[in-house]
Nucleic acid binder design. Sequence first.
DNA 1: GGGAAAACATTAT
DNA 2: TTCCAATAATGTTTTCCC
Length: 662
Amino acid sequence: MEGSETSGDTAQPWQSYHTVYTNAKAGMEGVDKEKVQRIVYEMSKGSKYFENEERKEAFIRQKIENLQAQCAKLTEADISNYQKVAEKRMLELEATRDLSRCWLHVDMDAFYAAVETLSNPTLKGKPMAVGSISMISTANYEARKFGVRAAMPGFIARKLCPELIFVPTDFKKYTYYSDLARKVFQRYDPNFTATSLDEAYLDVTEVCKERSVTSKEIAKELRACVYEETGLTCSAGVAPNRLLAKVCSDINKPNGQFVLPNDRMAVVTFISSLPIRKIGGIGKVTENILRGVLGISTCEQLLQKGGYICALFSQSTSDFFLSVGLGIGATSTPQARLRKSISNERTFSATEDEAQLFRKLEELSEMLSVDMQKEGLCGRTLTLKLKTASFEVRTRAVTLQKYISSRDDILKHAVKLLKAELPISLRLIGLRVSHFSEDKCGSPSDPTQKPITNFIASRDPKKSCSLLLPDVTDNDPVETPVDDASSSDYNEVSKVLGSDLCSLGDQSGSSSLDNVTCMPNLSEDEQLNSCQDETLLWFNDYRCSICGIELPPSFVEERQEHSDFHLAEKLQKEESGIQPRTATLSQRFGREKISQHRVNPRNRSCLGKKVDTCRLIIFLLKTVKACKLYYIILYIYILLYSITLQGWIFVSCVFFLVMKCV
DNA sequence: GGGAAAACATTAT
DNA sequence: TTCCAATAATGTTTTCCC
């Protein structure tokens, strides 16, 4: 960022292009920043990523302008009033200052890179980065001299340093060395807090007292022990609170330490000239906003502009800014925090192929379910994260009445969320589950399930209606028990996913709609009632649950056609429905709350048309599959005639049904 | 109007 | 020639629903 804000010069456009990795990091002091910035700009310019970054920057500029306007509206009286509020708050915060503790923040130096060098000493002295051509996790100090650093895409790093060696990440290795280091930390503070594999906070107050040594000596000894046990170097910062200790550990990196005495004057002097960006929690955006709106770049200025800060920001935000200005931070050992969410996401080459997208979703559901079951977690909020081909990030969430953790439950709800966004071209899909149950739920069975629903949810293909039925096991007063549309949705997806999705419920290899010979405990009428308007089942292995037609299992092709016929019929009902898609969504999702992406009303009709077209294509494809070739020829013939009519879809569907009946 | 949920943004490693 | 991650937490704003 340094000095670059002053230039609006179009001859040097790279000066206004900032990323997290154009900011200086330890070991990058001698780097030709201008050259790095120019190369990063040249490599990025014109890309979709770049365009999205520009959009985001424009958004931040707008935010700054809005805050400036808000500032301009403040009267003298307002300002004086807010100044009083700020002063009062500063006094209150000052009263909470605690200089009795000694906190030590320890940070392993270029951790992943150092571990890799340890296991492969030939890398020593060579510029090396851990990560891939798409993203770098850590760069060693040799690479940093070229401007290469963490969070930088590998292809840009290679341009900056053509001889850069890439090493893939190996978390097993890092976890092993991290555990070794943590054993050392434990000797100094049994309740230390690890914030990542390579960082930890230790309260060394007691150990200093017990051994009558200074915190400086403790830090030195700890670093020596870590080196002895792991062969890796680390840096340490010692200060009266965690916020300051973190800042201090960065000062003499690598393999160094910095101690800030437990003295108010020392703290205030230290913090006053510190750039706000050095503070954990103040990133690129906050820095830009504070500088753009209030001209703040050092912590001292946070206090000087306290009145404006209280006027513009929420209480929690202004409290944070004021305590930073005072050098006040947390001094108590944080409670062991319980995990609040679990997620996974994958980036891939952008695609709008729905089958591919659903396959990705299926893989993610599987992975997430495995992770959740490993940790015995069940959650009731599922969030789908999408990154479009143009790098726009969207999230769509649903909160259920029932806690879920199984792959099928996750997939079922994720599919609904994704379907509402189609058609879409994506480069990333992610799934997150939150709102965990307080009870561990390792057992796959749900004690709240009623016997019948339990039976239906069973994965045994011999007993189960399985995946093709909507999950009535939600046992949910909010969700509608069984919803025709949702079942049809799920069938559509089953078709799209093909055998992958169906394999769990269908190990016989027969058609997806043909795999069910179930509900032995119910009478046929009961079965018919419960399955009316639902997915097709073959009762007693020969009778269709929807129309009652009898077809023995050996009539494989005929049964497939029959299944497709009902499916097409269902689709036709959907297609000829007069409600717009936005209205049908609430029906589809029962009474679950689904927040829709806010669509610009101007684009809504356009989107609707696209969706309609897409659905028409699906319908046609299914029709083609369901018909013999001679039907198709006749179908196209009639279609060409009927296309001139307004209701041609309807006419086509009627024709199709007539042909099937014939 | 207020609380809950959803959507979005920011930050850190 | 083209290429920009994964995971988790938290805060703010917007939307929904009673």
